[in-house]
Simulated assay, not measured.
Amino acid sequence: MAKSFTLVQLRYFTVVARLENMRAASYELNVTQSTLSAAIGQLERELGVQLFHRRSNRGLRLTDAGRRLLVGSRTVLEDADQLHHSVRAEREELAGDLVVGIFSPLAPFLAPMILTVFKERHPAVKLSFFEADQEALIRALAEGTCETALMYDLGLGTDYDYQVLQTVPPHLVVAEDHPRAAIPDEPVHLRDFEAEPFILLDLKHSREYYLDIFKRLGLRPRIRHFVSGYETVRSYVSMGHGYSLLNWRLTRDETYAGGRVVALELADELPPTELVLVRLRGGRPTRKSLAFQEICVDLLGQAPPEQH
């Protein structure tokens, strides 16, 4: 016998799943918490499964059944949105919500640019970014919080497919008054900086990547500061607190602290990272996520992208 859950219940469910909090979801949906709770309860009864773990004072967490429903709900809701718009308009237009993960250090530089182009091409889609570190993005993809994520290829397992957009080699950054900053076009060797204080971008997977660079060269960095923010690293460097290694290279050299940094190319042969679009393997991508992928390739792709 077919189950009689509704599209409204599915929409409510997807918002609660994304926010993991009834109060926040009721605010976003503009319904009362009691209405939302009743809708989720009815959905669970219709499906005969528990969709959320209720955690005292810690919000909600999807069960395995809830994660499976979230993945399947995306295409159902998208098809419903497309049907609605095709009836009301002469041409079919993408519509609905799309949540995309993005690696936090990349978000200030890439998210506004991508959002601008996406809104121009698909004005009926509400695009939202979920900013997090690599570990949290991998978890969000596995749990269905976001359908795709723009990140580096660090820490990915076999459960994920990804598309390469750019190869991003590491570079070294120093303050503008550093002696080596006077000749910015001349590549440098990392060993020449080993004795100086090092500022580490302290995010899981990123941290291991940078420390492995030193290990490959037989070097040990003098780590002076562990910093979790990309711009904080650059600001520390600009104020003379040490040097650092980074990957994403900015065109501007001024930092939030007001000082300036100089990016130096490394002469050492070092492994690059790859900027990739990641999705959970085996899922059917929505047309909205494919439209996002197309825009990322247009804006960020260096060459015909590779599929993994």
Rank of each mutant, 00 (worst) to 15 (best):
Y12G: 11
F13I: 08
F13H: 12
T14Y: 07
L19Q: 11
N21D: 15
M22H: 12
A24S: 14
S26D: 08
S26E: 12
Y27R: 15
Y27K: 15
L29P: 08
N30T: 11
N30I: 13
V31E: 10
L36H: 04
L36I: 06
S37L: 07
A39S: 15
L43G: 09
L47A: 04
F52S: 02
H53R: 15
R54E: 14
S56G: 08
N57D: 15
R58A: 14
G59V: 09
L60K: 11
R61T: 12
L62P: 10
R67L: 04
R68N: 12
L69A: 08
L70N: 10
V71S: 10
S73Y: 02
S73D: 05
R74D: 00
T75F: 00
V76T: 12
E78K: 07
E78L: 03
D79A: 10
D79I: 00
A80G: 03
A80D: 13
A80M: 03
D81V: 00
D81C: 05
Q82Y: 01
L83Y: 08
H84M: 03
H84L: 12
S86K: 10
R88D: 04
R91V: 08
L94E: 03
A95V: 06
A95C: 13
G96M: 06
G96V: 09
D97Y: 01
L98N: 01
V99M: 05
P105G: 06
L106N: 11
P108Y: 14
A111V: 01
P112S: 02
M113P: 00
L115I: 04
K119W: 01
K119S: 15
A124F: 04
K126A: 07
L127V: 06
